[in-house]
């Protein structure tokens, strides 16, 4: 049997979920030298293009038009999509800005902050448009499995990976679940 091909995607989030994945330490090394091939992963590899894979793992919430576009492409390229972390599963802390008006947020950050001199909200075509409301991954595309946590524990991620390698859609047992 060939290696399972896995890609990861990082939308609007803090990268903590990817760090938790790295926190598998030796277990990750073992997986990578055995059953798993990481194809595209922003912090780990240099592959830029979406390539068809068996499993796609996505961290972060959908906060910009670019997030949405990337997510759709990613979804099209993976057989199973796994959302990891509270941002991907629920919207998480990235969605906390939904309690405020988008323009209020942008204006605070780029104009009103005390250290800013001559501020303006970046609006050129080089920066993607910010969505009015931050959404969970499952609100945009179909998701096969959710592994919540902020971040999910390495143990929960390892469980999910092992289930996937066994050909099952992981459903995290209640005793491994954590939203913090």
């Amino acid at each position: 049997m060939g290696k399972a091909r896995i890609s990861t995607l990082w939308l609007s989030g803090c990268s903590g979920c990817h760090m938790s994945l790295l926190d598998l330490d030796e277990a990750l090394v073992e997986l990578l030298s055995g059953k798993v091939e990481i194809v595209k992963s922003p912090p780990l590899t240099d592959v830029k293009e979406h390539t068809p894979v068996d499993v796609g793992i996505v961290e972060g919430a959908v906060a910009t038009e670019e997030d949405e576009e990337e997510l759709r492409k990613f979804r099209d390229n993976c057989k199973i999509l796994v959302a990891i972390g509270d941002c991907a599963c629920f919207g998480g802390i990235t969605s906390y800005r939904n309690l405020f008006d988008k323009d209020e947020v942008l204006s605070r950050v780029f104009v009103e902050t005390e250290s800013v001199v001559d501020g303006k909200v970046p609006a050129s075509r080089y920066v993607p448009k910010i969505l009015d409301k931050v959404k969970a991954v499952g609100h945009i595309v179909k998701v096969e499995a959710h592994i919540p946590g902020c971040p999910p524990s390495p143990r929960a991620l390892l469980y999910a990976l092992k289930e996937l390698l066994e050909g099952r859609i992981p459903i995290l047992p209640s005793d491994m679940a954590s939203f913090e």
């Binding site: 998701v143 459903i171 679940a177």
Partner: peptide, 10 residues
């Protein structure tokens, strides 16, 4: 939520 495995909100 853990017990009923509410891992996302549709």
């Amino acid at each position: 939520a853990y017990k009923f495995q509410v891992y996302n909100v549709p």
